[in-house]
């Protein structure tokens, strides 16, 4: 299971890449693998105000439907519209081309509620043992 070093993670398997005031959000390799072939992504709308750990997108696969929660609070400034036609991009490239949305972060302190890559790796080990 791939875990990218420079990202922060949630227990629901979303990742966030913070770059100044702006952050990019997606789901982890573990999440895309667990979902299987992704067939539909319901993207947030640009301008949406979202809260940390609040629902902001949903993903459907052949097997299941899953809500996606935002790792941090903010305002949606861009969404990955390419996913509407090619949702499988999340399976192929969950950390790069399969990003879901970009937000303008409202409270940088919230990042302390997230896991570093090493913490997330340990978390995955505990998830897999259960």
């Amino acid at each position: 299971m791939e875990v990218e070093d420079h990202l922060l993670y949630t227990k629901d398997h979303e990742w966030i890449n913070i770059d100044g005031d702006v952050a990019t959000i997606g789901i982890s390799d573990y999440a895309q693998e667990a979902l299987g072939d992704i067939t539909y992504v319901e993207l947030p709308t640009v301008g949406d105000e979202i809260e940390q750990f609040g629902e902001f997108a949903s993903i459907e696969s052949v097997k299941a439907a899953s809500d996606i929660f935002s790792p941090m609070s903010g305002k949606v400034i861009e969404v990955n519209e390419g996913l509407e036609a090619k949702p499988g991009m999340i399976n192929k490239s969950c950390y790069e081309k399969g990003w879901i949305a970009k937000i303008e972060i409202t409270d940088m302190d919230e990042s302390s509620n997230l896991m570093t890559a090493d913490e997330y790796r340990k978390f995955l080990e505990s998830v897999e043992l259960n």
Partner: peptide
């Protein structure tokens, strides 16, 4: 339920 993936 699947090997390499349902769609493949």
């Amino acid at each position: 339920v699947q090997y390499e993936g349902i769609l493949a």
